[in-house]
Nucleic acid binder design. Structure first.
Length: 264
DNA sequence: AGCTCTGTTATCTG
DNA sequence: ACAGATAACAGAGC
């Protein structure tokens, strides 16, 4: 489930190889997620390059190599990154891999909805620095949330939260968790929130992001036991707050789980 | 066998 | 023009 915290965790795995000098080990040109790379460009870019650093922004990642080589990674629905010991075996859905004298960096993506892209730039590319504020950034303010509400007043809260322009990193499970913690129904229209409800939404966005980063983001540990997270994956669950049945329905095109006795 | 799913984008429909 | 809905992408798991 690569959302904000999962993405951060996966990036941290590759970042542990900073300082190592890499060669291209595998590039699957038939895999949809790698098509943007180009064989010659990738071979040329990843020939004796040192990994310098890695950055994340919402669901996006950017790895900086020396020589002005930047690899942008999006994990889509089923993407994952891992760092392996030398000699580890690549598997069927490992579409891209780099090797150094010490480790192998692997991109795996069974459904191939992820995306790899190569950028050449002397410094961190300008577009990366201009991405909108993330929920845990200082610049993510109540004022910005109010402006976003103004702009998207007609949308249901669920699809509002999935908008990466305004809430980079928030994905399907985080949106459900945020609304459950804020006690707001996913189908409520953004414009229907009063000041107190909007304040609750703001608080829950930051709380869910912060705690997810401290657990999932840090070592892939599950979020706290009393979160909706543990109950939302299949039908028939009960609300940890009220003990009553959870509801499941498609809202904004995405499977949504909420507690009708808890959220209003 | 048939349906579901963590995400995004292109293409519809009203 | 525009917002919202839907299809498409590809595979694994139930």
């Amino acid at each position: 489930m690569p959302e904000l915290a999962e993405v951060f965790y996966y990036a941290s795995q590759w970042k542990r190889a900073a300082g190592e000098r890499f060669e291209l080990e595998r590039l699957s040109l038939t895999a949809r997620c790698c098509r943007a790379l180009g064989k010659e460009a990738a071979q040329e870019a990843f020939s004796g390059v040192t990994l310098l650093d890695g950055y994340t922004h919402g669901k996006r990642m950017l790895f900086a190599f020396d020589g002005g080589v930047y690899l942008e990674v999006h994990l889509g629905m089923t993407g994952a990154l891992r760092r392996e010991a030398l000699g580890a075996r690549l598997e069927k859905h490992d579409h891209f891999a780099l090797t150094s004298g010490r480790s192998m960096l692997v991109f795996r993506d069974p459904r191939q909805f992820g995306k790899l892209a190569l950028h050449r730039s002397r410094e961190v590319p300008a577009w990366w620095l201009e991405l909108p504020p993330q929920p845990l950034d200082k610049a993510f303010t109540r004022r910005r949330l109010a402006a976003a509400c103004e702009l998207r007043g007609r949308r249901p809260l669920k699809s509002f939260l999935l908008d990466q322009e305004h809430f980079p990193g928030v994905g399907n499970w985080m949106a459900d968790e945020i609304l459950w913690q804020a006690r707001l129904r996913p189908s409520r229209r953004v414009a229907s929130l009063d000041d107190e409800e909007r304040e609750n939404l703001f608080g829950s966005i930051q709380q869910v992001c912060r705690v997810a980063m401290e657990t999932v983001g840090k070592d892939y540990r599950d979020p706290p036991e009393d979160w909706l997270f543990h109950c939302r994956w299949r039908a028939g669950g009960t609300c940890p707050k009220t003990g009553k049945s959870l509801a499941r329905e498609t809202i904004g095109g995405r499977c949504t789980c909420w507690s009708p006795t808890w959220q209003h």
